[in-house]
Amino acid sequence: MKNSTHFKIFFLVFTFLSFFLVTTDTHAAAGEQKRVEKHEWTFSGIFGHYDNAQLQRGFQVYKEVCSSCHSMNYVYFRNLAEEGGPGFTPEEVKVIASEYTVIDGPDDFGEMFEREGKASDNFPSPYSNINEARASNGGAYPPDFSVLAKARSTERGFPWWFVDLFTGYQEQGVDYIYSLLNGYKEVPEDFKLQDGMHYNEYYPGNQIAMGQPLYDDSVEYADGTEATISQMAEDVSAFMMWAAEPKLEIRKKMGFKVAIFLFVLAGLLYYSKKKIWSRIEH
């Protein structure tokens, strides 16, 4: 009897909310922001994991295209060799690091000096500070890549924001970034584009300060993969996800073990409870 009442209530809640939520969309921006599609990633889902080759390609895109404007301050060169990452060897990491110049000091004369990067260094910033970054990019600050994949999202509306709670969907950021990188299109006739801005289907307001960063064959992949825009966008997005969540693989692996443990323990406790309560009438 109680259960049917609860069901009635849930149904009422659902219809009540649906009325409001499906009909109106308060997040429509000035231009028409195209809806971001869900993309398939190797790291999504309960058994998600990174694809080493993809992360290495993504790193190459970052290094050759993005890093001229975008810093990645919280990522260290040594992270590239860590478990659950692009899978470079410590020797390769040493070489990669040494190709960078980092600022160190002060030396014994009180001066800051430049030296080769070491594995223990973090990725250096292309600019000395935010102001320089803004000045070099028409007032717009190219955001740091370290957690960018977690700092972006897509509006999914009802009931998706509820459903997403239980499907483990956490790739909203990379789906958006992937779409954005593929989203540079010809300016529509009736659209007023401001000076210095570029048209993008997915950016809120459709005007983005960043010029199209990727063109076919912008990069020559070390593993010979064809470097289409869509391929590079996918690879660099995956790389950004790793940069934001380097512990993703170990987190999901641990989660699986914890889940098994808790289910077994719940079972044991259930039978214990039944045994103990069988002593009295209840």
């Binding site: 077994v264 323990l265 044991l268 039978y271 214990s272 045994k275």
Partner: peptide, 8 residues
């Protein structure tokens, strides 16, 4: 069962 639960 109590032992197993406790140990777990």
């Amino acid at each position: 069962i109590f032992l197993a639960t406790g140990a777990f």
